[in-house]
Design a binder for these strands. Structure first.
Lengths: 346, 346
DNA sequence: CGCACGTACGAAAGCGCTTACGTAAGCGCT
DNA sequence: AGCGCTTACGTAAGCGCTTTCGTACGTGCG
């Protein structure tokens, strides 16, 4: 494994600026105890020389750890890559480094990655992606995070509750309600749901929203055919096959994320089932390709990139007494994949 | 900014194992100069205590930097997120950390990110994404990388040549030829190209492949209407508008990546121009959504995830005397977006 | 005008680790 | 038995930075 060569050090900057090492350090860190004049000069010299602090030395000496660890389920899922993009934007603005780790939607693995990041002494930890309804795993994660925070680390999560830390909270339930209301307004009554893995809180929350919408309009949740599968495109395919077989009377399919919706549309197309004439399809997330599918996908937009930005921004703020929550808001985006319920017998 | 609390140190392990700090270090690093017996014992104690070395101290002291820096144009572009996924896989297997930085397709910014990573003393640098045909930028990048390698750093690039380092080389030209041949075989003669930003070598290479295919079949490259725009979906949209306006006789549009192809399809759909009956469309890359578009996209498949894996694997091998090149191979995937040229006047 | 006090800065002590160097022991050789 | 050589380990010197502490200087006051 490599080791870097000789580099520009802080002493060099200090020498060049005609001040001591300590003064240079203070000036660049923006600490007080240095006259504004000297500080400005040091910064000037530093810039001229193109000095970049050695993060290892800085951190070792008890300074800030300027790297943020980001745990995502799967980076090549657009939902997460858009979040990551937002995180990277803020990180770039703040001069932070971002380490990304996969959890692969496996609670144990997520825990392992989390411990690894803590051991690596990152300063900030961001966890994106649904929580699990396994109390043991959540409790362990919570404990790890609490310890990390006690040691001065900062944490924010996206799309999870129950971790006792600052959180960006997607409007999962409200989004689900919006979808339910939309379909009901179009006259749909036999609605099927292509739901993701049962153990995910995101799945549960979105589902609860849809159910609530039905109930609010006086319809029984029994009308809902819920089929669980993977929270991926292939999962959407599988779920659709099962829906078509077991619930052929369905006039609408709600996929609980866009990835699944893509799978749903794919199967319907290959079966030559017209969307939305025969079956309406709704997704959730509004990943960027949703607008470009054919038919373009009706879905609930979550501002993923902003969510990434918000999460890191939250984590950068000084910690508050009690965990903060930032709801994301949502927008129902009606496109071409939903339409009025087909005439009975049509 | 946070700072970690008191943690288990190497001295603690050494003390507990009844050896000196130096011996403990050597034992854990697997260096020689320690009897196998003692080494085993130290490792045992270390494991029992759950010791994890402080990477900052380790790196500062001149040891291994076990983090890899990955520069991508844009992480929320599926091409790059799939590559990143491959890198993360190998990194997880090897116990390495991955830092991701955006270049935003801006040469200057890429250079800045590169310098930043070098300054951050990562051990391995991976650059993914097209090179630029600006000799100054490339020369500077090359110089930075050379210096980094001289200092012991390891480097691999994906999709670039001319950087004097190990490279994973996508079959851009051959892929372009395959596309050209495919369209010619279908009878197309008036072919338009939605090309990405002119300064990108990837664009140039793919274009050269298409041109070569035309030439090989005795057709003049003048038949080709090349329209440059951004290498993104929106770029694809813009290019298509221009193609329809300036070259309405085109029977096929080649987008030089799938992102652009999505934009192309989107515009054609909104103009109600049937694909492939009136116009055939081809993409490049085979991002995972390509198969799920409507019509499903004919494209050239590049094994992005594997490319990410290959790049990191290359970088982990000891450096060879001369830069290695790993061609990626490619596959023409014919789907529904291409068909025979429409009958003249049809 | 002399005192205490705050302010701007420098000297030096580590942070936890790797590694050159030193040393004691064990080996074979003459 | 004495020499040099290797091997196994300990000692201590940093890596580049932050930060505590100390010192010199001005400023206010009585």
């Amino acid at each position: 494994m490599p080791r870097p060569g000789p580099r520009l050090r802080l002493v060099d900057v200090a020498e060049r600026a005609g001040v001591s090492l300590a003064t240079a350090s203070r000036a660049l860190a923006g600490r007080e105890g240095v006259s504004e004049e000297v500080a400005r000069h040091v910064r000037q010299v530093s810039r001229e020389l193109g000095y970049v602090a050695n993060p290892y030395a800085r951190t070792l000496a008890g300074g800030a750890s300027s790297t943020v660890g980001l745990i995502v389920h799967q980076i090549d899922d657009p939902y997460f890559s858009e979040i990551a993009s937002g995180v990277l934007q803020v990180a770039a603005e703040e001069g932070l480094l971002v380490q990304i780790a996969h959890s692969g939607r496996d609670p144990e693995n997520e825990l392992r990655q989390l411990r690894h990041l803590i051991a690596q002494q990152v300063g900030i930890i961001l966890i994106a992606g649904s929580g699990y309804d396994d109390p043991r795993v959540e409790a362990e994660a919570r404990a790890e995070l609490a310890g990390f925070q006690r040691a001065g680390g900062r944490v924010a999560v996206i799309g999870r509750h129950a971790l006792g830390v600052d959180a960006v909270v997607p409007d999962n339930e409200a989004g689900g309600r919006a979808i339910g209301a939309h379909l009901l307004a179009l006259g749909h009554r036999r609605i099927a749901i292509a739901a993701g893995t049962p153990g995910l809180t995101t799945v549960a929350d979105r589902l609860a929203g849809v159910t609530a919408a039905l109930a609010a309009h006086g319809h029984s949740p029994d009308d809902l055919a819920v089929v669980h599968s993977d929270f991926t495109r292939d999962g959407g395919r599988v779920a659709t096959e099962r829906i078509l077989y077991h619930h052929p009377e369905s006039t609408a399919i709600i996929a609980l994320n866009d990835a699944m919706a893509i799978g749903v549309l794919s199967v319907l197309r290959s079966r030559r089932i017209p969307v939305p004439e025969r079956v309406s399809v709704v997704g959730f997330d509004d990943v960027s390709v949703a607008a470009d599918l054919a038919p373009s996908l009706t879905t609930v937009r979550l501002p993923m990139t902003d969510m990434g930005r918000m999460a890191l921004t939250l984590a950068l703020k000084p910690r508050s007494a009690r965990p903060r929550r930032r709801p994301t808001g949502h927008t129902l985006v009606v496109r071409d994949s939903t339409g009025p319920v087909p005439a009975p017998g049509g």
